[in-house]
């Protein structure tokens, strides 16, 4: 019962779409770090209580600031940048269909002859078509399915119909509604989608290892002071120890 519920939950399309998104992966991981690390710091009995409290608050704030800075700057910039970059890369790769076919061919599936990204005005259309491919054709055609309707609208809005290769808008939309997830039609968008994710990974690395730590260190100390969390000094510790000795005496 519990196992079935768990499998049902992790197999849901919404969850599957979420975990294939680099920004979501990084945000959830950083959020969990913001909870887990301070909790373990507080539980560490080797250190005195004041130091533990200070370190835990500092760690929590640091992770939250990193997450905030990351979400504010990186996904937007790097997704746009990745989309623009991969428009050029796909244009070059499309000149070599035999190479494209060789790298996209698997044991079960034939290779893709064309990499489609040029037809989208921005990354939103490409991401929407990738998300829509994870829904079954029945769900895509169901007009009461709010997610499918929303994604179809996004595709319509963000596609340049003059650039759709070898077909008109209607036949393209028919394929969007009817083709299977692993069909050649949907696999032609993989490289573009992967390019955006690749760029997001690069952005996550830059954001979380260079930009966010440096910026958060600038903000962290004033915030710590503002909330009245000063670093426990050595003299405080000595005073405390002296008080304990006095009482014992």
């Amino acid at each position: 019962m519990i196992t079935n519920g768990f499998v049902h939950l992790i197999s849901k399309n919404g969850f599957q779409n979420l975990i294939q998104n680099t920004t979501a992966q990084v945000s959830i991981e950083t959020g969990l770090k913001a909870v887990g690390r301070p909790a373990f710091t507080l539980a560490d009995t080797h250190v005195d209580k004041e130091t533990r409290k200070f370190s835990a608050v500092k760690e929590l704030l640091y992770q939250l600031l990193c997450l905030g800075i990351y979400l504010a700057v990186i996904p937007f910039t790097f997704k746009k940048g990745g989309f623009a970059l991969f428009k050029k890369i796909c244009a070059k790769v499309n000149q070599h269909p035999e190479f494209l076919e060789s790298i996209t061919k698997t044991k079960e599936l034939p290779g893709v002859k064309h990499c489609a990204i040029d037809m989208f005005k921005n990354e939103k259309g490409l991401i929407a078509i990738h998300k829509l491919s994870h829904l079954s054709p029945q769900k895509r055609q169901d007009s009461s399915n709010t997610l499918a309707v929303k994604l179809l609208k996004t595709i319509e809005k963000n596609t340049d119909w003059n650039k759709v290769p070898n077909q008109d808008k209607d036949s393209f939309m028919q394929k969007v509604l009817n083709e299977e997830q692993k069909s050649e039609f949907f696999r032609q968008f993989y490289m573009g989608k992967g390019g955006i994710e690749m760029s997001s990974i690069a952005g996550s690395v830059v954001g979380l290892t260079i930009l966010a730590p440096e910026l958060s260190h600038l903000i962290l100390h004033p915030i710590m002071k503002f909330i009245g969390m000063d670093a426990p000094s050595h003299s405080d510790k000595v005073k405390k120890e002296a008080n304990i000795l006095d009482k014992q005496a």
């Binding site: 975990i19 294939q20 998104n21 680099t22 992966q25 990084v26 991981e29 991969f86 890369i89 790769v93 190479f99 494209l100 790298i103 996209t104 990738h130 696999r187 968008f189 993989y190 490289m191 573009g192 989608k193 992967g194 390019g195 994710e197 690749m198 997001s200 990974i201 996550s204 690395v205 979380l208 290892t209």
Partner: peptide, 22 residues
């Protein structure tokens, strides 16, 4: 190599990639 990697990521974006890179 970039094209190959991008196609793989488009097919399946393993969360291990990004956490290991970070």
């Amino acid at each position: 190599q970039i094209a190959k990697g991008a196609f793989k990521l488009g097919n399946h974006n393993d969360p291990l990639n990004v956490v290991l890179a970070i």
